[in-house]
Design a protein around this nucleic acid. Structure first.
Length: 545
RNA sequence: GCGCCCGUAGCUCAACUGGAUAGAGCAGCGGACUUCUAAUCCGCAGGUUGCAGGUUCGAGUCCUGCCGGGCGCGCCA
């Protein structure tokens, strides 16, 4: 149990003893100011009215009724805060727990609740861009964080390898392919073709693997082959980039399978039976306005083809049918209108709205030398995720992406990113880890083989470091619950700062053995938490720098 | 026009979803290496948290109205 929970518990007891009252919420937090104690609570302020007493009086009485061995002293401060200082024994005990749990420290109890996390899901029409990189970094880190918090997370990539975009890709490659052999390939709309350099790469690879035989045959037949090759090429390319960035998926879900399995037909039949669809103007509509959406949406177009709504609702129903009770979709901010529509569809099937949790990621605005660049995949004016990884490395890139909230628009200047990569705060955090490794190397012992230690007094820097270390589980839990990744970097930077401050003032390898053992323990604990935290972000924790 | 999101130091971002004197990094100025890694530490300077009201013991955080920016409001996905 965390200190917050334990303190909340004793405060509840005190309220029972002093007032015979059962408090509902007891908020305990770590004050910003060290002078305000290790922990503080505002219960006296929050309940003063109910007790019909002024807050300080309530605080006094609660403090008197307090019975807690882990608390060394309390102080009433300000308008009625109760500030707590913990005993050194209590702190050391928690540190020992931390050391014992090692890389499991911060891991919550398994909730047993399976969660499906879908992210990236970019269709295979080209390389990943820096914008997709943000999705990959955020989604993968979120998966790690939710797992650490006890969730049973499956990472899924949903893609469509059919449709207009894909046909366009095939034609684009075909034109280049023909060019390679000094031939021409006629397309309906040359303006619409993809122009990126990678199109030539695909054409070249296709040509060298399959020769020129496809130029002699029926265009449609050839196009099918070229298209399949191009899709495979792009998918391969995307997976390679993801792997480089240490992003792994548990499953890839193909939209096509929904057609093949009959899931879409089944969906439409069930919606019809439920009375949630109607025909109008030759199209089939979902009465989504009755289910929380702004207006009704077309499911089947006049020409008989489906809108994206049909497969997408079927896909989410499939997630539900697979046993997931939480589906987190990581989508671009331009999908703002998406959640209510899908929820409407799901509601028609009796699936509750809370099932779908959509996290919208703000756009990445691309700049060059301060000037905004219009990004277009078709025109080939984009920066790839690979280029970024080449320039700044995996650690810097991943850290950079998740350092700010996914809800904040991100200005991305590749020139600036390269220029500033060596002052990226990730090094500050990694350096703390390497410094500790170096201490252990010097001491000639392994962080896992510490001797039994005797609790002793904590210097101010040691105390601050300890409290920060013990805050880790709470930070992970909160981040997971709020689907936020950026609290982890924020936490790690503070932890690294606490360590560097401690290191500057207190020498670890001193002659006094008891003191030396305690400080080594503190170092080992810090090293473990830094490694755990960096791991949640997919960033390395180096032994040397 | 309607809906959602955002506005915090010169710049990039935090602030434990209502707490105490709003914090870091970068940029600027000044200090600290014969001692476990100076990719570090310490100090100075930098703010009317877009504006105006309201709610309460307390507001960057909640409510209302403005101002400014982004996104959405397709039989595109």
């Amino acid at each position: 149990m965390s200190f917050e929970e334990r303190i909340a518990g004793v405060v509840r007891e005190a309220a029972r003893a002093a007032y015979g009252v059962e408090l509902e919420v007891v908020h305990v937090e770590r004050p910003n100011e060290t002078a305000h104690g290790d922990f503080a609570t505002n219960v006296a302020l929050a309940n003063a009215k109910a007790f019909r007493r002024n807050p300080r009086e309530v605080a006094e009485r609660l403090a008197e009724a307090l019975d807690a061995p882990l608390v060394e002293r309390v102080e009433i401060a300000g308008p009625g805060f109760i500030n707590f200082w913990l005993t050194r024994e209590a702190l050391w005990q928690e540190l020992e727990t931390l050391l014992r749990e090692g890389e499991d420290y911060g891991r919550g109890a398994d909730s047993g609740e399976p969660v499906l996390l879908e992210f990236v899901s970019v269709n295979p029409t080209g390389p990943m861009t820096v914008a997709h990189g943000r999705h990959a970094a955020y989604g993968d880190s979120l998966a790690r964080i939710m797992q650490a918090a006890g969730g049973e997370v499956t990472r899924e990539y949903y893609f469509n390898d059919g449709g207009n975009q894909i046909r366009l890709l095939g034609e684009s490659v075909a034109v280049r392919y023909a060019e390679l052999h000094d031939r021409e390939w006629s397309v309906s709309d040359p303006e619409a073709l993809y122009r990126g350099e990678y199109i030539r790469d695909i054409a070249r690879d296709f040509s060298s693997e399959r020769g020129d035989t496809f130029l002699g045959m029926d265009q449609n037949k050839a196009l099918t082959e070229i298209q399949a090759f191009a899709v495979g090429w792009c998918m391969e390319d995307i997976k390679k980039t993801l792997g480089r960035a240490r992003v792994v998926f548990d499953s890839y879900f193909n939209e096509k399978s929904l057609y093949e399995s009959g899931a879409i037909e089944e969906l439409l039949r069930d919606l019809r039976e439920g009375g949630y669809v109607y025909e109008s103007e030759g199209a089939l509509w979902l009465a989504s306005s009755k289910l929380g959406d702004d207006k009704d949406r077309v499911l089947v177009k006049q020409d008989g083809s489906y809108t994206y709504m049909a497969p997408d609702i079927a896909y989410h129903r499939d997630k539900w049918n697979r046993g997931y009770r939480t589906a987190v979709d990581v989508l671009g901010a331009d999908h703002a209108g998406y959640p209510p529509r899908i929820r409407a569809g799901l509601a028609a099937l009796g699936i509750p709205g809370e099932f779908l949790d959509v996290e919208l990621i703000r756009l990445v605005k691309l700049l060059r030398g301060g000037e905004q660049v219009k990004v277009s995949k078709r025109a080939g004016t984009f920066v790839t995720f690979d280029e970024l990884l080449d320039e700044v490395g995996e650690d810097v890139a991943r850290y950079f992406y998740v350092r700010s909230s996914h809800q904040t628009e991100m200005n991305f200047d590749l020139d600036l990113a390269i220029q500033q990569s060596d002052e990226n705060p990730v090094f500050y955090v990694q350096y703390a880890h390497a410094r500790i490794a170096s201490i252990f190397a010097r001491a000639g012992i392994n962080p896992g083989e510490l001797r039994e230690m005797v609790p002793g007094d904590l210097a101010p820097e040691e105390r601050a470091l300890t409290l920060q270390l013990l805050d880790f589980p709470r930070v992970v839990r909160n981040a997971a619950a709020r689907r936020e990744v950026h609290p982890i970097p924020t936490y790690l930077e503070t932890l690294a700062a606490r360590f560097h401050q401690f290191y500057t003032v207190n020498r670890v390898l001193v002659d006094d053995e008891a003191l030396r053992d305690r400080r080594l323990a503190l170092c080992a604990a810090t090293k473990a938490v830094l490694a755990n935290g960096l791991n949640l972000l997919g960033v390395n924790a180096p032994e040397k720098m």
